[in-house]
Design a protein around this nucleic acid. Structure first.
Length: 917
RNA sequence: GCAGGUGUGCCGGAGUGGUCAAACGGGAUGGACUCAAAAUCCAUUGACUUAUGUCUACGCAGGUUCAAACCCUGUCACCUGCACCA
């Protein structure tokens, strides 16, 4: 291998790019724009490892490709420098967060520059800069104006380790998103909220139109949780209490009502007689709630009140229950134990009756038998419709019965008594209404497996397995046919839901509604390193917004850490006069959630230095929305929902004229160390460092290697062995460059080049970098046999997005003046492409496959067998002409013409086949 | 439980109806070069066997088709999210 000084080449070109301001995006360019963005990082003091480098490279490749393809590309970088991690890291380092951050950022920038990324550094922003967070505050005031920011006292999630409140989105499984070993506790505090729920419907519905990864969209849909249902008023103690349900068809099956234990108006329902019991229950709840709310058993207590079911006037008991969510719907549910598993559990526990009002559309039982007497078979008919579905050699008849609901129990008894125990021939039976399988000769068993095919598998592959009997058919939660429901009997659930809603509406005791799971976004944090909330609390005027002209409210430097909310420790900052009445007021000491900063930063890149406005509308109109956004999937329900919300808000404020922040979203996979070890900044030994890689293999080699490993959305592992393959390739290019002498292109190479240009362009565009590397290798293989300077240059351009430094070097060596990074992407010639690709139709294709084989063979006669695909006559005749041989054609289907045993069998079945004589 | 995704050779990973025993890379084996090694180059890398040959393969089981890794049905396993949302 050649010794190559990658380091020097990298330095040289990084400097040249900077000198030429090669990647500065021009606001006034006439070219079409393209906005590539990677999620801005929090600048940790320890800098970045190869995993980060790879992440940025994914976007960089697109950016470079687009630049060369004639776009004016905006590819900015900035720092999400406010927030808890920075505050904690600073405290740990014994520094003030401001100082710490201001040291970290230059270090980060330096390291990113060393990777050779195409960032427009003139647009760099940092969220801890007051000129940036001023606009966080401005947006907050605008939201306040529009009624979208408000404060309320509420139960909030508190992380004892972060020492602050968390948003719903930041709690996973009852644990903090940063500390998965720390359970979140509930506190009641007055907090600021942003009314993201106002946009719930649009946030939900618009997902369908977006080119974002399916899983992200699915997660967001889940999170927003839109569901259509009916709100039904139950009268309790003369007052109407609305209850939300998606299953209005089960209204006649309601046997009790449950109100959330945490319901704010629970007291109104509790009778004197039950007061003691309820208080007792609430007390036990409190002691548990801090730990495992999740896997707690369904419990409750009777409140003493009764609710009147508006559908049938029945009085049903009202319970307070621990399994009802207080802030979803109305915090109250109608319980239908016959058709809901949770309700059933509860009903069983407290001895509440169960009333069935839905029956399966069609129960289906299947008996598999070998030689059952006819009279037994005909006996089965009395239970309902019957059919013999299929005959199977091994297992005999498959008899299917659809019993009427009334006869179902009888049928089960009949099967048990007559068939399963007494007949040797009966193998078993199953019913998919209750998903039951039973086998002969065994203890009876019914379990919730899944029907016939499973049974067959059991029967064949395992023989007669142990079967389990569990007649758990009393809860039917599927949709079906209504019964016991008065005038609605016989309707299907789907129709009944509509009809019952209409009926209740006409009676004035119900209405159709849409509910969302999404809650408002709590943004108050009791920490220092965040955007101050621009509010002054006044004894007389309440919460008064800081006037726009007084923005930004700057974070004071002088605070004490470790004694609760740091901002509370600076009295000088806290005490200000009320902007409204002038009397003494006090600043809001909470700061904003760090996600506020990242919700709109991509807009600021368009006009990062504007001091008069959040941004110039025209500039944003020019660049936004983001065309390609690259970032981790972990933000699916946080940053990626919040920023959508912000965009919609700013749009409605008249500042934007688009609906979504990014047209296309891409989640990169994670790069792990050798053998799948997670790289973590806290464990330096696990980290592969870009500077080591650059020394050893060169950044370009690493970029090529990582590109060639797998699709960039997949998780990949670093491998010291694997990169050797890429190093070999890079070395070959160096050797080629050293010894390059211009030659004529072969026509094969010409065609190949065309194809490669076309394919590689497509691949870069769609993140299929791996395929691009394969095409480039294939092209280079041909080039090694000799090629023109033009071809060589085109190759360098094609390789440039992945290997920007070395391609600049070779480009220069060829005598070119400008930067290859700023050169124009090669065009492909569509005529040549046609020759190369030979766009042939199906018939030609089949014949085409045969021809080269036939040509090779010395023979006088060719017998050709083809399947009638309408191709014989014309195409074969042509083939005969072209080959100049005698070809005799048979149809494969025309049996008497050939002996299938030793002839047509040869090639793949169905393919035209031939033999020679 | 619900939702989304994945399952291909020793490994990573292409391949979405016929030019597929399966691209490309890694690894392994053999050979060339060398005193030797590294690097480089060539060949082989499902089985049987060495022929323009057969068989077995793309999680498993069925199905559609002249033809299936690719389409359909069912099923299993793994990954990722959400989980008492009525």
């Amino acid at each position: 291998m050649v010794e190559i000084d990658f380091k020097a080449i990298e330095k040289k070109w990084q400097n040249k790019w900077a000198e030429a301001s090669a990647f500065v995006a021009n606001d006034d360019s006439d070219k079409p724009k393209y906005y590539v963005l990677e999620m801005f990082p929090y600048p940790s003091g320890s800098g970045l490892h190869m995993g980060h480098a790879w992440n940025y490279t994914i976007g960089d490749i697109i950016a470079r490709f687009k630049m060369m393809s004639g776009f004016e590309v905006l590819h900015p970088m900035g720092y999400d420098s406010l927030g808890l991690p920075a505050e904690n890291a600073a405290i740990q380092a014994g520094k003030h967060p401001d100082e710490y951050t201001n040291e970290s950022i230059p270090n980060f920038v330096k390291q990113q520059k060393a990777i050779g990324l195409t960032y427009d550094w003139s647009r760099m922003i940092s969220s801890h800069d007051a000129t940036y967070y001023k606009w966080d505050q401005w947006i907050f005031l605008k939201m306040l104006e529009k009624g979208l920011a408000y404060q309320k006292k509420s139960a909030v999630n508190w992380c004892p380790k972060c020492d602050t409140v968390l948003a719903n989105e930041q709690v996973t499984d009852g644990k903090c998103w940063r500390h998965d070993d720390t359970a979140v506790i509930v506190k009641h505090l007055t907090q600021w909220f942003l009314k993201i729920t106002d946009y719930a419907d649009e946030l939900y519905e618009n997902l369908d139109n977006m080119d974002w990864p399916a899983r992200t969209k699915a997660m967001q849909k889940h999170w927003i949780g839109k569901s259509h249902g009916t709100e039904i008023d139950f009268e309790i103690n003369g007052e109407k209490w609305p209850v939300f349900t998606t299953r209005a068809d089960t209204i006649f099956g309601v046997t009790f009502v449950v109100v959330a234990a945490a319901h704010s108006k629970l007291d109104a329902l509790v009778t004197e007689g039950q007061r003691g019991a309820v208080d007792e229950f609430l007390k036990t709840l409190k002691s548990v709630s801090e730990k495992e709310m999740g896997d707690m058993e369904k419990e409750g207590v009777f409140t003493g009140s009764y609710a009147i079911n508006p559908a049938n006037g029945e009085k049903v008991p009202v319970y307070a229950g621990n399994f009802v969510v207080a802030d979803y719907g109305s915090g109250m549910v109608m319980a239908v134990p016959a058709h809901d598993q949770r309700d059933l559990e509860f009903a069983k526990k407290y001895g509440i009756k169960v009333k069935r009002v839905i029956r399966p559309k069609k129960a289906r039982y299947c008996i598999i038998e070998k030689s059952l007497p006819e009279n037994k078979i005909s006996e089965l008919e009395k239970f309902g419709e019957m059919e013999v579905e299929k005959v199977d050699e091994d297992w005999g008849k498959f008899i299917i019965i659809y019993p009427t609901p009334e006869k179902e129990k009888e049928l089960i008894a009949f099967l048990k008594n007559n068939l399963l125990e007494k007949s040797e021939n009966v193998i078993g039976w199953y019913a998919n209404s209750s998903d039951v399988v039973v086998f002969k000769d065994k203890e009876f068993s019914i379990s919730t497996t899944n029907g016939l095919s499973e049974f067959k598998e059991y029967g064949r592959s395992i023989g007669m397995p142990e079967a389990h009997l569990d007649l758990n058919v009393d809860c039917y939660s599927e949709k079906g046919i209504l019964s016991n429901s008065g005038e609605f009997n016989g309707l299907e659930s789907k129709d009944a839901i509509e009809k019952i809603a209409d009926w209740l509406k006409s009676k004035g005791s119900g209405r159709k509604v849409t509910n969302f799971r999404l809650r408002d976004w709590g943004i108050s944090r009791q920490r220092y390193w965040g955007t101050p909330i621009p509010i002054i609390h006044c004894k007389d005027c309440g919460a008064v917004p800081v006037p726009e002209k007084d923005l930004p409210v700057v974070l004071p430097k002088d605070v004490k850490f470790g004694e609760g909310n740091p901002l509370e420790t600076n009295e000088e900052w806290l005490n200000v006069s009320c902007p409204k009445c002038g009397s003494m007021g006090r600043r809001e000491a909470d700061t904003m959630d760090t996600f506020v900063n990242s919700s709109w930063y991509f807009l600021r890149y368009c006009d990062p230095k504007n001091n008069n406005e959040i941004f110039d509308k025209d500039k944003v109109r020019k660049w936004c929305p983001v065309d390609t956004y690259v970032g981790g999937a972990e933000h699916a329900c946080m940053h990626l929902i919040y920023s959508r919300f912000y965009v919609k808000f700013l749009r409605d404020l008249g500042y934007l004229d688009f609906d979504e922040p990014a047209k296309r979203l891409f989640h990169q996979g994670m790069l792990s160390g050798e053998g799948g070890v997670k790289m973590s900044k806290s464990k330096p030994e696990t980290c592969i460092l870009p500077k080591d890689v650059s020394n050893k293999y060169g950044m370009d080699t690493a970029r090529f290697f990582l590109s060639s490993l797998a699709s960039p959305d997949k998780d990949i592992d670093w491998s010291e062995k694997g990169i050797i393959g890429s190093l070999r390739f890079v070395n070959k290019i160096f050797e080629f460059a050293e010894t390059f002498e211009e030659k004529e292109d072969s026509s094969e190479l010409e065609i190949k080049l065309n194809n490669v240009i076309k394919n590689v362009s497509e691949y870069y565009d769609n993140f299929q970098y791996r395929k691009a590397t394969i095409e480039l290798r294939a092209l280079f293989d041909l080039m090694e046999k000799g090629c023109s300077k033009d071809t060589y240059e085109k190759f360098l351009k094609l390789l440039n997005p992945i290997c920007p430094h070395i391609t600049e070097e070779f480009w220069e060596k060829l005598g070119n003046d400008g930067l290859i990074s700023k050169s124009l992407w090669p065009k492909f010639d569509s005529i040549k492409l046609k020759v190369a690709k030979k766009e042939i139709d199906v018939n030609e294709k089949v014949i085409g496959m045969l021809k080269p084989n036939l040509e090779k063979v010395e023979c006088s006669k060719i017998y050709l067998y083809v399947i009638p695909m309408e191709l014989e006559k014309y195409d074969v005749a042509r083939l005969v002409l072209e080959l100049g041989k005698e070809v005799i054609v048979y149809s494969v289907r025309n049996g008497d013409k050939y002996d299938p045993k030793n002839k047509a069998k040869k090639s793949r079945p169905g393919m035209p086949s031939f033999y020679l004589e």
